[in-house]
Amino acid sequence: MIRALIIDDEQHAREELEHLVKETGAFEILGSCANAIDALRRIRVEKPELLFLDIEMPALNGFELLTMIEDELMPHVVFVTAYNEHALKAFEEKTLDYLLKPVSFERLLKTVHKVRETIRRGEAPKHQVELLRHVPCQFANRLKLITFADVEYVFSDLSGIHIVTSEGQFYTELTLKVLEERTPLLRCQRQYLVNPDKIDEIKLLENGSGKIKTKLGNLLPVSRRYLRQLKVRLKL
């Protein structure tokens, strides 16, 4: 049984796909999600092997969801869409398979076959993950999308990951690791990422560590280990 997650913003579409997927008998359905943020949480918990992923979704589309998943959790992906636009055509090469809505059962069986083969061969997911364009943050009841130019720094504490901008502090689902890998942010301490464009000055301390003063005047710790990397990256 292939452990699969269904992601689609429309309830009828999710139900229909669940129904068809169950009928193949090839999948264990871990759940179905109505949006990318919900999906991200479930992926971390359930660690699915395969996503049935709708492309057109509110706030964050299917492609954007993929940029937010950590590499080691990255599942195989079958895109499901109503209409094959050019965007999908370009993606076709890199993706395992895609299904057109309404989905026919026979076509789904072919997908099952492809997925089984790929997993049997132990291939890693083929799709290339692009750089994140903005960070989704929860803000009141809304999803706020912050672009990187606005980010001052990022830190983690017991309550989670927080993005600091001139407008304030926002909570995000993304991990520091994903943010470090897929954005220009640099690690300066185990719990801190800094936007190199926002660094005002770096103070060197006697014990080999340091402190960063950002343009907004915030002080960030720099550990010895990351100070060296930081210097290399900033060509100091």
Binding site: E10, H12, P102
Partner: peptide
């Protein structure tokens, strides 16, 4: 196509 998909469900 979305309409047809909805109706099928």
């Amino acid at each position: 196509f979305n309409a047809l998909n909805t109706i099928m469900a």
